[in-house]
C-alpha cells in the first residue's frame, strides 16, 4: 500500500507544511510518493526525499503552471489510482482543501480535514480532528480502504533522514472541463513569510493606533523571520490587508510562537491562535483577556516594549 502526498511550492521552495504532510505519510506507510506541479530544483527534490518520499511524481504541463484546482484534482486522482495508493495526504491550504475533497469523490475515498494528530489504535483508523475552531478535538474513525487526509500545520515534525527520491515525469489526462475556472490575475506579496506557514507570527491589534505605526512590528518580525498578522478590526479598517487577519473569521495559525501586541484577546481572535505552541502577549491593560490564554506576557505600552524586545533579540542572536 502506498501513500500519495500532494506537495505545494512557494517561491521555488517546498512549503514546510507539505514536508510535514510527507512525514505524516511516512509515519503511516513506508512507501510514500509525492506529486508536485512545479518544476523544482535539486535542493527542493532533496528536501522531499529527506522528509520521507521515495518517489517524486513531477507534472510538467505548461497549462498547469498557475494552480488549477480542478485539473490538479484530476491529475492527482489519476496518479493515485495508477500507483495503487490507499491514502492521500495534503497540507491544509487554499489549494489543499478543495483538492482533497475533489480527489476523494473521484477515487471513492473517505475524506477527513483539519487533522491534528496521527492515526492511532489497531484495527480502526482513528485521527484527531480539530473542531469548534480549535476549542475541541474529535477522535474520528475514517472508514473504508481509501482515505484522503488533510493535516493542520505543526501536526508532525519534518523528518530529515530520507534518501534522495526517484523523480518520474507524469503527463495526466486532462479534459476541457478541468479548465472552466479561469484565473485572470493573481496578486500575491512576494519575499514575505506566508502567515499560515510561519513558525513565528507577530500580530497587531487596534491598540497599535494606526497603519503608520506598524514599523515596530515589522522590525520585530524581521529579526525573528516571522510573518505579520492582525486582528479583525485592523483589517476591517484597512490598516492591514485582509489575508493577515487572524481568528474565527480569518486565518487560523498554529505557529511555535504567536506574539500579540495591542490585541485584547476576544474569544473570536483566540479561536484563530489557540493551537499555537507558545503565546506572548504585550498589552498595556493588565486585565486584557489575552493574558489568560498566554504563556508569557509583558504589561506595558507597545511603543516602549516592542523596540526593546527587538533590540534584546538582536543582541542575543548575534
Amino acid at each position: 500500500m502506498s501513500v500519495l502526498v500532494f506537495v505545494e511550492v512557494d517561491e521555488k521552495e517546498i512549503k514546510k507544511s507539505s514536508l510535514e504532510a510527507i512525514s505524516y505519510g511516512k509515519a503511516l506507510e513506508d512507501d510514500v510518493l509525492a506529486i508536485c506541479f512545479d518544476k523544482v530544483d535539486h535542493g527542493a527534490v532533496e528536501s522531499i526525499g529527506k522528509a520521507g518520499a521515495k518517489k517524486l511524481i513531477q507534472v510538467t504541463n505548461e497549462q498547469l503552471a498557475v494552480p488549477n484546482i480542478m485539473a490538479y484534482s484530476s491529475a492527482i486522482a489519476e496518479a493515485f489510482d495508477q500507483n495503487g495508493c490507499s491514502v492521500l495526504v495534503l497540507a491544509k491550504s487554499s489549494l489543499g482543501d478543495p483538492v482533497s475533497a475533489r480527489v476523494a469523490i473521484k477515487v471513492g475515498a473517505s475524506v477527513v480535514s483539519n487533522v491534528s494528530g496521527l492515526s492511532e489504535g489497531s484495527g480502526e483508523f482513528v485521527v484527531d480532528r480539530s473542531i469548534y475552531t480549535g476549542k475541541a478535538l474529535a477522535k474520528t474513525i475514517v472508514k473504508g480502504d481509501k482515505k484522503v487526509i488533510t493535516i493542520k500545520k505543526n501536526t508532525v515534525p519534518v523528518r530529515e533522514d530520507g534518501a534522495a527520491p526517484e523523480v518520474v515525469d507524469f503527463q495526466p489526462t486532462l479534459s476541457d472541463g478541468d479548465f472552466v475556472v479561469k484565473v485572470t490575475k493573481t496578486e500575491k506579496t512576494t519575499g514575505e513569510v506566508l502567515l499560515p506557514e510561519a513558525d513565528i507570527v507577530v500580530s497587531g491589534g487596534r491598540g497599535m493606533g494606526g497603519p503608520e505605526k506598524w514599523g515596530i512590528l515589522e522590525d520585530l518580525a524581521k529579526v525573528l523571520g516571522a510573518a505579520t498578522g492582525c486582528s479583525k478590526p485592523v483589517s476591517d479598517m484597512n490598516w492591514r490587508p485582509h489575508h493577515e487577519h487572524v481568528g474565527q473569521t480569518g486565518i487560523k495559525v498554529s505557529p511555535s510562537l504567536y506574539i500579540a501586541v495591542g490585541i485584547s484577546g476576544a474569544i473570536q481572535h483566540l479561536a484563530g491562535v489557540n493551537s499555537s505552541k507558545y503565546i506572548l502577549v504585550i498589552n498595556k491593560d493588565p486585565e486584557a483577556p489575552f493574558f489568560k490564554a498566554a504563556d508569557f506576557g509583558i504589561v506595558g505600552d507597545a511603543f516602549d516594549i516592542v523596540p526593546k524586545l527587538t533590540e534584546a533579540i538582536k543582541a542575543k542572536k548575534d
Binding site: L137, A138, K139, I141, K143
Partner: peptide
C-alpha cells in the same frame, strides 16, 4: 454511508498560568 464517525470528543488541556515579565 458516512465516510467518518466520531468516536469521542476531547477538550484541549487547560492553559497554565501566564508568566509575566517586567519591562
Amino acid at each position: 454511508e458516512e465516510g467518518t464517525t466520531v468516536k469521542t470528543f476531547e477538550l484541549p488541556p487547560p492553559k497554565g498560568e501566564v508568566k509575566l515579565f517586567e519591562e
